[in-house]
Design a protein around this nucleic acid. Sequence first.
DNA 1: CCTATAATGTTATATTGTATCATTTTTGTA
DNA 2: TACAAAAATGATACAATATAACATTATAGG
Lengths: 173, 173
Amino acid sequence: MTTTHPPGQYQAQHQLGFHETGHDHIHCLESALGRAGELCRERRVRLTPLRRRVLELVWGGHKPLGAYDILDILKSERRGAAPPTVYRALGFLLKQGLVHRIESLNSFVGCPFPDQDKPHGGQFLICRSCGLTAEINDHQIDQAIKESADKVGFAIARPMIEIEGLCPRCCPD
Amino acid sequence: MTTTHPPGQYQAQHQLGFHETGHDHIHCLESALGRAGELCRERRVRLTPLRRRVLELVWGGHKPLGAYDILDILKSERRGAAPPTVYRALGFLLKQGLVHRIESLNSFVGCPFPDQDKPHGGQFLICRSCGLTAEINDHQIDQAIKESADKVGFAIARPMIEIEGLCPRCCPD
DNA sequence: CCTATAATGTTATATTGTATCATTTTTGTA
DNA sequence: TACAAAAATGATACAATATAACATTATAGG
């Protein structure tokens, strides 16, 4: 399915901010899966069918999904799916930077920027009404955090920013 | 114990950044408890012995403490302490802004700035080596986040910043 | 083909957090 | 003081999230 795509074609297809109501999610999803395949091939790691399926489920929408939500779906597809099935796949995907964990929700969401290998926990805008989540990657925020950390002699390893609020669709005007 | 203190004397005794090895923690703790008492009196809410004790435990150090760690201590002090005992006390303290929840650690830490009623999840520098945690309150960071959110039409309700890294004592030079 | 390694299956259990209802304590008021 | 309403706590059960440990299967490389 993805074997005929030339490498690189999946890059830079993300968009910043929130996705619009009618955005082409099928393309969005295939693009993410395709890029994930490329990256794993480059890195000589194995995006197995199970891992790929979990990634696909996480990318089912732009809303964080709980491990047990994923498990419920897997259980209906393969016999013997259990918590470790999901957590191991998620562990792999997290390590490869293909998904992020939203700490404040105990949930997981696909990463639209899997290429950069910066050790960041990510910057997320999370709608408390509809759950829609946007990953931003704001250098100004990074910079402000860096300066603040420097002031007290703190060495940043993993900045994690999760902003709860209302997305444009849920917050009229 | 705190009844003879004139109001206001507990204000502005926090320090920014990380506490030094030999900082006067007894004073630090008493100051926090005293200010908590004042605030609760002003707000006409009840800092009961149980709640006060939980606050004291959370303030036992500048490291986030898990609910079940608190519970273990309570169980050795009062008969019949159970999870709800701790979670209800923590719920009260969180609501009053006297403690914060560190989402990435499922743990709780005392808030050094309980006066400001901004709806913020807090900005934390968390040492991955020793666990020491500093709450910062950087306006530059707030500002950068605000600007970034505005760009995509997102209305911030509760910004949450948890930066994992190494504190000055664990990160030589 | 064979072996070492990686991935997955399977079962059990640990950790974190809530729901629910009974009881006690406190507050406001007559 | 006495009493009713509200708040707080006690007590039991359970839900939700995550990991440990060991067996089995699949894959890569020689």
